[in-house]
Design a protein around this nucleic acid. Structure first.
Length: 552
RNA sequence: GUGCCCGUAGCUCAAUGGAUAGAGCAUCAGCCUUCUAAGCUGAGGGUUACUGGUUCGAGUCCAGUCGGGCGCACCA
């Protein structure tokens, strides 16, 4: 709707000779008595023009020219708001558009011809996925879905490292458990991975090789089989939540020399050095972030000769620029917050357009069981496993729980409540609306023989004039704006909120308006409205990755 | 100590700087002989942690105070 109002208001301002740097906001008032849409442009520009806002608003109104039959009423209200009321004709005409567009309804074109990359999950294969990782995974998947609705060609990427110190410890952990299988008594170090899955991997190896590996100090086989098993279990877990990646980027490629015999890491060092941001001291190679006003320089190459995580991170992002992505979204948990500024600074120094990079940070998930908050750690093996949660509450509820809160808020996951499978579960409310519509359409077909999907009598929609019908129609028309807002904020939670209010309106409509029992034309019109509602629910569910059951 | 996030109803959370701060759960009172009651209608419940500031207007922005979470390695 923004596109609908914007040019008209701009024209009115121009013909009044008003120049303003202020942005024209079109918003929905919290209360319907202030109109369907509203703008505060008169309030914003009054001071610049040295005018009374209400007077100014009145004069702007006189110059507004809308297409016929679209706006029922325009008024000045309060301190100087301009409020717009849509005609019932316009609303119902738009519902028709929902039916015509079908699965395409809500799509936009701002990303057409552009490539975007979303990086998410990116857990190293040291253990099964935890609930905390799940939140980022679902968030990333939904953001990728949102980007696709706007025409972006999206790459879903998983960045991982199977070479570092943690993998070494993983291999050793498995070896210790294996030795236990062989009958040895081991003092298992606190620093190592204590999860039950390590034993299982060790038992697998024991079953395959017996005691043959007990006297070797070779870690490779333990590390490799652990990595293989853990990675496949991670992928399986993600699959259960319909989270998929189409690109796996191994950090190790940044350590591998190219045709010229130079590694990506080395190129980063060389380029930063050329710009005067590299120095060697204390045996290490440093990124001189003190020159950028930070307290300390940051190590890029440790005195051992190995790069720290920052160096490949920079190289990794350069690879995204080289792959020519117009938008790069990084999704990660709050514990990774501090690594970002350095990477961005380095990229700026090297002349990259860092505005293309968007960071979506999700706050932590705390789980409460019996009112007790649990602290999680993969290494201690007491983490809440994502798989267990999916077992308990199902994939739909898991996904919805993760995105029904703003990513900036700590998510309090009450495991007991989620396990209940009761009607308290918010996912049921949304899905029930969809199932209800499906049932309605089935019965309508049976009893009246009318199938709205194969009829084009859309003009019948104009018969619907009751407040709840118009409110429902209006909500449908708001869907495309909702997607854009959600994407701009990288916040799928907005979609959940919207779909909830849409479901609520439908339930009310269903309660107040007899549909199959209504007179023929009214019945048809209400079935059209129901069908359009189902379409928007479906389209929204697809973005959230929640299933749309035909019956419940 | 310091960087980021958060503090809103009994609980979990909403509210692109807008008009009377809203949902769900919980509590209470109604609505199924009628298209799915996993639903609908209504009631109660608030000094938006605190103190200042910015402006036509602040839960929202700024400064400070208090409280909670996450970081602050030559780990990733």
């Amino acid at each position: 709707m923004h596109e609908f109002f914007l040019p008209v208001i701009q024209n009115a301002l121009r013909s009044k000779g008003i120049e303003t740097s202020k942005q024209i906001n079109i918003e929905q008032p919290s209360d319907k008595k202030f109109g369907d849409y509203s703008t505060n442009i008169a309030l914003l520009t009054a001071k610049e023009c040295n005018r009374n806002p209400r007077e100014l608003a009145q004069q702007i109104i006189e110059h507004l020219v809308f297409p016929p039959d679209t706006i029922a009423k325009i008024e000045v209200a309060g301190p100087g708001f301009i409020n717009f009321y849509l005609t019932p004709f316009f609303i119902m005409h738009y519902v028709e558009q929902v039916l015509l567009d079908g699965n395409e309804y809500g799509k936009g074109r701002i990303g057409e011809g552009k490539r975007a990359i979303v990086e998410y999950v990116s857990a190293n294969p040291t253990g099964p996925l935890t609930i905390g990782r799940g939140r980022g995974g679902v968030l990333g998947d939904c953001i990728a879905n949102l980007l696709e609705t706007q025409g972006y060609e999206v790459t879903r990427e998983y960045y991982f490292n199977d070479a570092g110190r943690q993998m070494q410890i993983l291999g050793e952990s498995v070896r210790f458990r294996y030795l236990e299988c062989c009958g040895q008594t081991i003092e298992f170090p606190d620093t190592h991975y204590q999860g039950e899955y390590i034993r299982e991997i060790a038992e697998n190896i024991y079953n395959a090789h017996g005691v043959a590996l007990a006297n070797s100090n070779e870690l490779q086989i333990f590390k490799n089989s652990a990595e293989e098993l853990i990675f496949s279990s991670i992928k399986k877990t993600l699959e259960r939540l319909s989270i998929r990646h189409d690109s796996f980027f191994n950090e190790h490629t940044l350590y591998t020399p190219d045709e010229a015999g130079i590694t990506a890491n080395q190129r980063v060092i060389d380029a930063l050095r050329e710009n005067g941001y590299i120095a060697e001291y204390d045996g290490a190679t440093w990124f001189l972030t003190t020159k950028l006003g930070q307290e300390k320089d940051k190590v890029l190459i440790k005195s051992s000769g190995e790069p720290s995580y920052r160096l490949p991170d920079i190289g990794y992002h350069i690879s995204k620029f080289e792959r020519d992505f117009a938008m790069m979204v990084n999704v990660f948990g709050a514990d990774h917050i501090d690594e970002y500024p350095d990477v961005i600074e380095a990229l700026k120094i090297l002349g990259f357009d860092t505005n293309r990079i968007k960071i979506a940070i999700n706050q932590f998930v705390t789980t409460t069981v019996d009112g007790q908050t649990l602290k999680m750690s993969t290494r201690k093996g007491n983490a809440d496993l994502l798989d267990d949660l999916i077992d308990d509450v199902g994939a739909d509820a898991t996904r919805l729980f993760f995105i029904m809160r703003s990513k900036d808020s700590h998510l309090n996951f009450d495991v007991e409540l989620a396990k209940k499978q009761s009607k308290d579960n918010p996912v049921f409310y949304l899905q029930y609306a969809h199932a209800r519509i499906c049932s309605l359409l089935r019965i309508a077909l049976q009893e009246t023989g009318f199938d709205p999907a194969f009829s084009k009598e859309y003009n019948l929609l104009q018969l619907l004039t009751s407040p709840v019908e118009l409110q429902l129609g209006f909500a449908l028309l708001d869907y495309p704006d909702m997607i854009k807002t959600s994407l701009r904020l990288l916040e799928p939670q907005k979609m959940v909120e919207y779909l909830h209010s849409l479901a609520e309106l439908f339930h009310r409509f269903y309660q107040e308006c007899p549909i199959i029992k209504a007179e023929t034309d009214i019945c048809k019109a209400r079935l059209f409205l129901s069908l359009a509602t189902r379409q928007v629910l479906r389209n929204g569910f697809r973005i959230l990755g929640v299933s749309a059951p035909e019956s419940m």
